[in-house]
Write a protein that binds this DNA or RNA. Structure first.
Length: 592
RNA sequence: CGGGGAGUAGCGCAGGUUGGUAGCGCGUUUGGUUUGGGACCAAAAGGUCGCAGGUUCAAAUCCUGUCUCCCCGACCA
């Protein structure tokens, strides 16, 4: 491609709206342009990167016998109503009506349509297993798009869906897609960690997220450097300390004026925060009769020094969502904010859920459900009983790894992919069944697997750059080689040499971005750096005199020369070396 | 949805308190000189100052409303 003809413009100044590096660089390179919050144009250079990433998706999906399809962006409401998600999902789903008033939505994901497709086409066990995928636009009306193209509303996703006879089939396929995802990320030059994740509204039994570690990440992960345990904080567990062994003492009221926080309480009574119990009041939305939801007051108890993990709680009580209770709601169940106690509440109105460590700890200090009063020596079982006792606390930096006991490390990550064992939730809802050898009907067992190409592109730019611009890995760079001609009208021999080299390399199938613009050397070098083309060739008068062109690697800054009469071989060797550096990152992965 | 910030030329910004014909740098166009890390000289194009009302002889500037964008949080299938 001749840069004199390329539709692009680089910016010297950083657009004011862009805060994170990848967003700034992609705007400055002219790869993307923002249209509205979370909605972007992709210009030729940016689109090439995106398409190269998508080519890797295809390659890896095809390698595990995936078959590409293309399902619509606009979906009839009816399909989403059958699984109930039409009602469960709120404003994140963009809804519209056609001219006849029929309700439609923009696809946020495609489980419904894929299950419907299977329902139509699959009838026999002989047809399975199989896997379908597509690379296609999704729209999610996010409440707050941010971070350039990392969190957007309209995006491109490679979503794949597996269809198996039974769970054993799904379990056998799952490690293959897991490996395939690692291959994709490594081939894009991205290091990721896989973490166990919440299955959330997708339903299902097992899920992994692939996280790129970066401070701009929106998720918090807990990682064990000792044994490799890793999990999203939403579901991470930690080995809990042994509760002390003590004789149960009689319950005792104690006056604690103004001690509404655990810290104040512990200080006032001169005890450790570990000797207190903390009450958290929430209202959960639970599934009720015939698809409707009902609200339930939830009283959660964790040890005073620990934080409640709302995702764990939500999952434990199978709620759709939870919100903080209002003061009136707290009073209505006989509790008192700041002095909450599981002892003496209106037990029939409250779903009481207690962290397992609290249940095992003797003689804790809890509230008295009365302003300025607490209770000493509150003991589970003797003084109160919960509806559920389970792990409810958020794992934190320094906690003991649940597998090996070493200290956990907390880092931020961006989710660049996820894989779910869906099970039969969608196939049952859509009636996607098959007949086995005996003629018996069974629901198809599904899995769902997603990666966003635009987010992946942004994350790679976020992690591969320096003060001069992006450093694209050669596998996804818009061009492999940047050919900088320093020729001017006064040096026609240099111009001719550059033209000849451009033809030679292009004819050999090398992707060359040829800077034939009437610009000074500095402009061309700076643009080549900014755009992040991995290999730069400089054709100038000095080099030509000596029969060479100069080379520079964007990734390392390493410079060398290639003799003109050996040019093609030399450039191919550079490309091969860059590709090998990527190949060297490919690994065999075991499920964490 | 709660909190904070911002909308003036393609990009970055000034002007606003004290109302009086809208400015700077980069980029763009033309001509000339230059030409190995963002050149120089000269000329030029380009803005209903987010939008709508209001106050006023007069509004980018003051008042009211509204829309949009960014950041923090809530949310995130």
């Amino acid at each position: 491609m001749r840069m004199s003809k390329l539709f692009f413009q680089t910016l010297r100044e950083v657009p004011a709206d862009a805060e994170i590096v990848s967003h700034q660089l992609m705007l400055r390179t002219g790869m993307i342009r923002q249209i509205a919050a979370g909605i972007f144009d992709y210009l030729p250079l940016g689109l090439r990167v995106k398409q190269k990433i998508e080519a890797i998706f295809r390659d890896e999906m095809n390698a595990i016998e995936g078959q590409e399809v293309n399902l619509p962006v606009v979906h009839p409401a009816e399909l989403w109503q059958r699984t109930g998600r039409w009602y469960e999902i709120g404003d994140d789903m963009a809804r519209l009506k056609d001219r006849n008033g029929r309700e439609l939505c923009l696809g946020m994901t495609h489980e419904e349509l894929m299950a419907d497709l299977a329902q139509q086409l699959v009838s026999s066990y002989r047809q399975m297993p199989f896997m379908l995928y597509q690379i296609q636009t999704k729209f999610r009306d996010e409440p707050r798009p941010r971070a350039g193209t990392i969190r957007v509303r309209e995006f491109t996703m490679k979503d794949a869906y597996s269809f198996d006879l039974d769970f054993a089939g799904l379990d056998a396929f799952y490690p293959r897609i897991y490996q395939s995802y690692f291959n994709i990320f490594h081939r894009c030059g991205l290091e990721v960690v896989a973490v166990n994740s919440d299955t959330g509204m997708m339903g299902g039994t097992m899920a992994h997220e692939f996280m790129a570690i970066t401070p701009i990440g929106e998720d918090t992960l807990l990682i064990c450097d000792s044994c490799g345990y890793s999990a999203n904080r939403q579901i991470a567990t930690a080995r809990k300390p042994q509760p002390p062994v003590a004789e149960l003492l009689p319950i005792e009221r104690v006056h604690t004026p103004g001690a509404t926080t655990i810290a104040a309480l512990a200080e006032f009574l001169n005890i450790a925060e570990t000797e207190t119990a903390k009450a958290v009041f929430l209202v959960a939305e639970l599934a009720g009769e015939n698809g409707k939801s009902r609200e339930q007051f939830v009283f959660a108890v964790v040890r005073g020094d620990m934080e409640l993990n709302e995702t764990k709680l939500t999952n434990a009580i199978k709620a759709r969502r939870v919100r903080p209770a209002t003061v009136d709601e707290i009073h209505a169940v006989g509790a008192e904010a700041g002095y909450g106690s599981p002892v003496g509440i209106k037990r029939d109105q409250v779903l009481l859920i207690v962290d397992d460590l609290v249940a095992a700890s003797p003689n804790l200090v809890a509230g008295a459900n009365q302003v300025d009063w607490h209770l000493r020596n509150v003991n589970y079982a003797r003084d109160y009983k919960a509806d559920i006792v389970t792990d409810l606390v958020a794992a934190a930096e320094g906690d003991a790894c649940p597998q090996c006991g070493a200290a956990l490390r907390s880092v931020r990550g961006v989710e660049v992919g996820n894989i779910f064992k869906l099970g039969t939730k969608y196939s049952k809802a859509m009636g996607a069944t098959y007949l086995d050898e005996k003629g018996e009907s069974h629901p198809i067992v599904m899995g769902s697997y997603g990666i966003g190409s635009d987010r992946l592109m942004a994350v790679v730019a976020e992690l591969h750059n320096d003060e001069n611009g992006i450093q694209w890995p050669i596998t996804i760079a818009p061009y492999q080689v940047s050919l900088v001609s320093l020729g001017t009208p006064k040096t026609p021999d240099v111009v001719e040499a550059a033209e000849r080299i451009y033809r030679q390399l292009s004819d050999a199938g090398i992707e060359v971005l040829y800077d034939d613009r009437d610009e000074r050397a500095g402009v061309k070098f700076n643009d080549a750096d900014l755009l992040g083309i991995p290999i730069r060739l400089t054709v100038g008068g000095k080099g030509l005199k000596n029969g060479i062109v100069e080379t520079k690697l964007r990734r390392t800054g390493a410079m060398s020369e290639i003799a003109l009469d050996n040019l093609l071989v030399g450039v191919q060797a550079l490309i091969r070396a860059e590709l090998q550096a990527i190949d060297a990152t490919l690994t065999e992965e075991k499920l964490v």
